[in-house]
Amino acid sequence: MVFVEVKGAVMKPGVYELSEGDRVLKAIEMAGGYIESSNPKHINHAERVKDEMVIYIPKEGEEVEESPLATNGSSQSSLVNINNADATVLTTLPGIGVAKAEAIIAHREQSGAFKDKQDLTKVTGIGQKTFEKLEPLITVK
């Protein structure tokens, strides 16, 4: 069994237990499906779910860097760009809640764009252990 978190524009956001090998489509169905204002066009419904995966469904008109699907970093298209991601997208990362997302944005606004991933450790509340979890999931394009 694997646990997957479904966030964003779905009827019932939350953590769901699925069988290994299940598809993203099943996780979205378990979350009650899309709300009317969702924008699922960048979601790979056929992708197999992975343990600790976060599936983020944006709303129509919401800007999302590359694919809004944040996985365990297994593919380039799922990386979150910490230089332009908003708080909603940042909170799809493990260990990043609203307060840390706001701290990342505040640091970015005060100090400019992150030059490399390691710069994320300069943000208050993000230590080396948190960074190690985030490194495979982020980019600084």
Rank of each mutant, 00 (worst) to 15 (best):
G14A: 08
I96A: 00
G33R: 09
I82H: 03
Q118H: 10
M30Q: 08
N72Y: 09
S111T: 10
L18W: 13
G14V: 05
D51L: 09
D86W: 11
E60T: 08
K117E: 15
E47P: 04
N39C: 11
L18T: 13
K115I: 05
G112Y: 06
R108S: 03
T88Y: 12
E36W: 12
D22V: 10
E60I: 07
D22W: 10
F114C: 06
V123F: 05
I43T: 03
G127D: 08
K41I: 11
Y56N: 03
S74F: 10
K117N: 14
M11K: 13
V2M: 07
K117Q: 14
R48P: 13
T130N: 00
Q118L: 11
E62C: 06
A70G: 12
E29G: 10
A31T: 03
A103N: 08
L93R: 01
L69Q: 15
K100D: 00
H42C: 13
A27K: 04
N72P: 04
G61C: 09
P13G: 00
V15H: 07
S75T: 14
Y16V: 09
T91V: 04
T88M: 13
G33T: 08
E17I: 14
S78Q: 09
L90Y: 06
E60K: 11
G95H: 01
G8T: 04
N83S: 09
G112M: 05
P13A: 02
K122A: 15
L69W: 07
A9Q: 00
I35Q: 10
A27V: 05
E47S: 15
L18N: 10
V6P: 02
A27W: 07
N72H: 06
V4L: 13
S77M: 08
S38D: 02
D119I: 00
G95C: 02
N83P: 07
V89T: 10
G112K: 04
